[in-house]
Design a protein around this nucleic acid. Structure first.
Ligand SMILES: [Mn+2]
Ligand SMILES: [Mn+2]
Ligand SMILES: [Zn+2]
Ligand SMILES: [Zn+2]
Lengths: 138, 138
DNA sequence: AAATATTTTGCAACATTGTTGCATTTAAAA
DNA sequence: TTTTAAATGCAACAATGTTGCAAAATATTT
């Protein structure tokens, strides 16, 4: 509980119940969440718009990062100490076609690629789709 | 012109002017296109819904593939001989933050990654964002 | 070449997703 | 406690995507 305030303060954000609730949603569910997921999880507690703005703020402040998807954007916690300035990620995302969940594989990072002459890379996003261990087991 | 009919026939599709126009848009513009891009390019010629359905059909038949993006889904031609059955891609996509264009780097394929025990991969999507050669030059 | 069967299209209506302006409320600072 | 600045809710809107159905177009058969 106090941990949430710490995190928000650490990113120079005022503590509001919405921000606390959204943040704890990300912490509790371990998988990536869409705006709709949050709307579902938080019920009627907050206005849709407020959730959109909370996501936008969290993005800017380096609390969450975007997770690309072929069906719709999702978001996940930045594990590392991201900030407004440094906002770097190089881990892989895995989306299970069975359970639909997308997860950060934090300690699995994107292999280097040598781009043709002239291309100046800045950020990388790798999404692997398939079946996750839980769903393979069944 | 006749080439377009060939391609459509080859994927067991009836030739219609909308399909020809959408297909040639993909051929002419070399970069990935969104539904909105097509709507812009084709003007008032066709209904929005028809373009949506054309994209869906092209996807199913293996004429185009999805290109992940952090702002919205795009589509690009399948260079290989994709079909309704086999629809595989392993090339890299590059999005330029300067000109906004996203391109298939056809001959640059996604490096192998060894996933943790239990993960069963099926498809891969790598988007690299940065500056493209044209925009670097300026 | 015409008739038929089948697919595609346009339109309307709707659902979902995301954005903006502004008055009110809330949090932090004084 | 008062003041100041930021965050929220609401309304209205814009953009994006989906569905049902009648009309039009394509391909097939006669
Ligand atoms: Mn992640
Ligand atoms: Mn591609
Ligand atoms: Zn799963
Ligand atoms: Zn560029």
């Amino acid at each position: 509980m106090e941990q949430l305030r710490e995190t928000l303060k650490g990113h120079h954000l005022r503590t509001t119940t919405c921000r606390e609730d959204v943040l704890s949603a990300f912490i509790n569910k371990k998988n990536a969440l869409s705006h709709g997921d949050l709307e579902g999880a938080l019920g009627e507690s907050y206005d849709r718009v407020t959730i959109y703005r909370t996501l936008k703020t969290f993005l800017e402040k380096g609390i969450i990062h975007k997770v690309l998807d072929d069906e719709g954007l999702r978001y996940a916690l930045c594990s590392q100490q991201c900030s407004e300035e440094k906002h770097q990620h190089d881990h892989i995302h895995f989306k299970c076609s069975a359970c639909g969940k997308t997860n950060c594989l934090e300690n699995l990072h994107i292999p280097n690629v040598t781009l043709p002459q002239g291309y100046q890379p800045a950020s990388f996003n790798l999404l692997i789709q398939g079946t996750c261990p839980e769903c393979v087991a069944e």
